[in-house]
């Protein structure tokens, strides 16, 4: 007991206060696992940070060394292939989890007043995750990742007004050059994680302040307690999900380990060039329409998603369209899935 009283004197926070602070009452509907999808990307984010730091120990961000250092991680360092594969699959699962979380929030209308701002923060987190996926893959410096980055940067350049600036800022020059990789690296490994941590903190603080939006299921009986304890009850659920994710990641890493294609060759573009799966939607969209139009529509769609809570409220109050968001959501999901499958199925 000596130690605990010694600590209490120096850190004047009592266990009870701490519990009070963290022990948010959790609505009963969170007993269903699909309502816990918000914690999943957060957990995966931690995994990405841990494995990312491990990879950074050996990764050398320059066009002359990057490929060989990834090769070293994959072929020579003990368990290097495992941590690289976990990082790769972690990214994939994280993007999937963010999208699922967002779909759940959307279809249950959890973004409605007073939670509009948190929805917008969530949108920012989605974009950050996607950019992290893009920049992360470009660091491998294999043929596909090199050309993916080149194509991606040039798509960005077709944005009116700021396009060229954004490309120059991303590549550090007109084209991919000696200084490009270090930029991509610092964006991926420093700027994006810091922004994500800040926004994630805001996101969670807002949830904590506003409370989780509550849902009632018809199967629940009247008069039963509507909440249960975060601690330890809900924490255990999150630990369970974390373990399931770790098992899933390890299995994926061993069964489908991250591969290493041929080294980037700025003089020859591969026959089949594709971005990572989560950009299939945008890639197919770009192939359907002319460059600038596709970029502007994409921007418009993203903007619409951002301000959807306000559009939804306008539709509900002024037009009385209660069900509009459900139909728009179904349409959006179907077109995203459709475009992704289309892009995945064809070579060009």
């Amino acid at each position: 007991m000596g130690i605990s009283s010694w600590l209490k004197e120096r850190i004047p926070v009592s266990g009870d206060q701490l519990r009070e602070l963290t022990n948010e009452p959790v609505p009963n509907h969170l007993r269903h696992w699909w309502f816990c999808l918000g914690g999943t990307p957060a957990y995966l984010f931690v995994i990405q940070i841990v494995t990312g730091i491990l990879l950074a120990f050996y990764y050398e961000p320059s066009s002359r060394t990057a490929y060989n250092s990834v090769k070293y991680i994959t072929d020579e360092a003990a368990y290097g292939w495992y941590f690289r594969s976990v990082h790769k699959w972690g990214a994939t699962l994280m993007i999937a989890a963010v999208i699922l979380h967002q779909m759940r929030v959307f279809f249950t209308g959890a973004y409605r007043k007073p939670r509009e701002l948190n929805w917008m923060i969530g949108m920012c987190l989605l974009l950050l995750t996607l950019i992290a996926g893009f920049t992360g893959y470009s660091l491998v410096y294999e043929q596909l990742s090199y050309w993916g980055t080149t194509v991606g940067a040039n798509i960005g350049a077709s944005v009116p007004v700021v396009g060229d600036l954004s490309k120059q800022m991303l590549l550090g020059g007109e084209t991919y050059n000696e200084r490009t990789l270090s930029r991509l690296y610092i964006i991926h490994a420093a700027i994006l994680p810091v922004l994500t941590i800040v926004l994630l903190g805001l996101h969670i603080t807002l949830i904590r302040l506003q409370g989780v939006s509550e849902l009632k299921f018809s199967s629940e009986k009247e008069g039963e307690p509507a909440h249960f304890n975060f601690f330890p009850d809900h924490l255990l659920t999150e630990i369970k999900i974390g373990l399931v994710l770790m098992i899933l990641l390890s299995v994926l890493a061993t069964v489908l380990p991250a591969t290493l294609g041929p080294r980037a060759d700025p003089l020859s573009t591969p026959e089949v060039i594709k971005p990572e799966w989560f950009f299939y939607v945008a890639f197919r969209w770009l192939k359907l329409f002319s460059g600038t139009f596709a970029v502007i529509t994409t921007g418009f769609i993203v903007f619409t998603m951002f301000v959807w809570p306000f559009i939804d409220s306008f539709l509900r109050r002024r037009k009385g369209l209660e069900e509009a968001s459900v139909w728009v959501g179904i349409l959006a999901v179907l077109s995203i899935v459709g475009l992704t499958v289309w892009e995945a199925a064809v070579a060009h």
């Binding site: 491990l54 120990f57 360092a77 003990a78 368990y79 630990i239």
Partner: peptide, 21 residues
Amino acid sequence: GLVTSYGCFAAMAGRYLYPAR
């Protein structure tokens, strides 16, 4: 269960950081 599994993961990370050869 938690200590052994995550501990094993941490041990592997340690082995990864130790020079490979």
